[in-house]
Amino acid sequence: MPKMIEVQNLSKHFREHVAVSDLTFSLEAGEILGFLGPNGAGKTTTMRMLTGYMPPTDGTIRVAGFDVFEEPLEVKRRIGYLPELPPVYLDMTVRGYLEFCARLKGLRRKAVKSEVDRAEEATRTADVEERLIGNLSKGYRQRVGLAQAILGSPPVLILDEPTVGLDPVQIIEVRELVQSLAKSGEHTIILSTHILHEVTELCQKALVIKGGRMVGFDTLEGFRRRLVDGRQASLEEIYLRLIEAPGIDPLSGEKTAAEASPQVPPEASPEGAEKNAGVDSPSEPSASP
């Protein structure tokens, strides 16, 4: 299967501050990735670079074979993106907003109506479609944001903390929605979240970053085999191990990944791990000045 998302040596610096450093991973079509890391680890920055909102300082991103920097429009056509705060217009009705988004995504006039209907149904926002978004609760706004992301069934979905700030019922609803999207197999999904069992439930792989550096990228099974000797440890335990690894040297974490990679299942990207191993040394000086 072709790689849907390929990220190579991705770095982002804000003046002196290094937000993301030397991130390399790839996803195949239909894979669901849980994107984990403490607040400020660079998750949102990475997602913004993937969607073409920000240019990387260094490195390349290819989505469905198109380079984000060279052919941004082709990439943007293929990505549905839900930012951290739902990007909604408070002065618009739900329907008006979704129709606007559908037109922006280049859907034909006839397709606009049916797509908006479909997205509203999927996110259960049809009953508020005539209301102004400014008058909706946070949960509904989040769902409207999600509806916007799935308009036009883009092959890649990037969801930045879709369940943050929702009540338990809403969290379950959004999770079910993401699950149904995942099951359809039409989407490659990158999901950032702090709720770890969400990742266990939804995702095939997890990518953990810390301080802008990747400390782990594997399937849950792969992590277990490597870090806890195959014990049925929860993702929480694995996550804590990755984040609070003694010595706090993220590179050593990456090296572990490279060593362990031959044993991981075929689709669990030994390729990604190799790249990590390959870029270990050149990345060091770039971070130190």
Binding site: G52, I79, L85, V88, Y89, L104
Partner: peptide, 14 residues
């Protein structure tokens, strides 16, 4: 301010 700029800049619009 509304963060909708992100929507416009990530939509396939020049």
């Amino acid at each position: 301010r509304q963060r909708t700029f992100e929507l416009l800049m990530t939509a396939p619009v020049r």
